[in-house]
């Protein structure tokens, strides 16, 4: 399935369930997403992890409504509890089956996102492991001079931005020297196709969601 359409569908779902208060619908979405994930051979451990990680914020939201809410407190508490899981699981159907490269290709080729945005972000994304390492280096270098750089120290961010400026110029130069020209038409090695099936899935998916929200008499 085309990643951009998949993203759009999930975006609509996330947006719409933010404004509905149907517990069973949230649970149905979680179950459907879980089936999708299992069909895509997601490891059971990953699914277990997806169940555990949101537990703390979910309990937090639940207790906030249950203790300090107004109106039907129990209903709202459980709506929010299940909504968090619906967010996490529907979101996982995207992030666990699609990578950023496929999304960038689709946005560039099917939606005419300027290529400098697609490839610029990809270039930065590929540095994630190096960035995490660099943060440790900055912190350790600070410690060597007796400076504890915490998340509220301007110096920590300042040094991170210095590195970013340096790397961004190097990367941009490297891309230009390899023949990347901003705002110039490109040919593509990987083709991203957007066919009528994608549109059909989107329309059916959104249609089913409306049926679930407005027509099904959930108990």
């Amino acid at each position: 399935m085309n990643p951009s359409i998949k993203l759009l569908l999930l975006f609509i779902i996330a947006l719409e369930i933010s404004f509905t208060m149907i517990i069973s619908l949230n649970i149905t979405l979680v179950i459907l997403a879980m089936i999708y994930l299992l069909a895509h051979r997601t490891k059971l451990r990953t699914i277990g992890w997806l169940l555990i990680v949101p537990l703390l914020p979910a309990i937090g939201l639940w207790s906030t409504q249950y203790i300090n809410g107004s109106g039907n407190k129990t209903l709202m508490a459980w709506v929010l509890f299940t909504r968090i899981y619906a967010f996490v699981f529907t979101g996982a159907t995207f992030t666990l089956t699609t990578n950023i490269l496929q999304l960038a290709d689709a946005l560039e080729q099917n939606w005419h996102l300027p290529s400098k945005f697609a490839y610029g972000v990809l270039a930065a994304y590929n540095l994630v492991p190096k960035i995490q390492h660099e943060v440790q280096i900055i912190r350790t270098a600070g410690l060597m001079r007796g400076q504890q750089l915490s998340f509220w120290s301007p110096k920590l961010y300042f040094k991170a931005i210095l590195v970013s400026i340096n790397w961004s110029q190097n990367l941009a130069q490297a891309m230009t020297s390899h023949g990347f020209v901003e705002d110039a038409p490109r040919t593509h090695y990987r083709h991203s196709v957007l066919c009528w099936q994608d549109w059909a899935i989107l329309i059916i998916g959104v249609g089913l969601l409306q049926v679930g929200i407005f027509l099904v008499p959930w108990v």
């Binding site: 610029g120 972000v121 930065a124 540095l127 994630v128 590195v163 961004s168 990367l171």
Partner: peptide
Amino acid sequence: LSDIILIALIGIF
């Protein structure tokens, strides 16, 4: 291009 990479790098940092 360098602005885009810069802003993405800062976000990741």
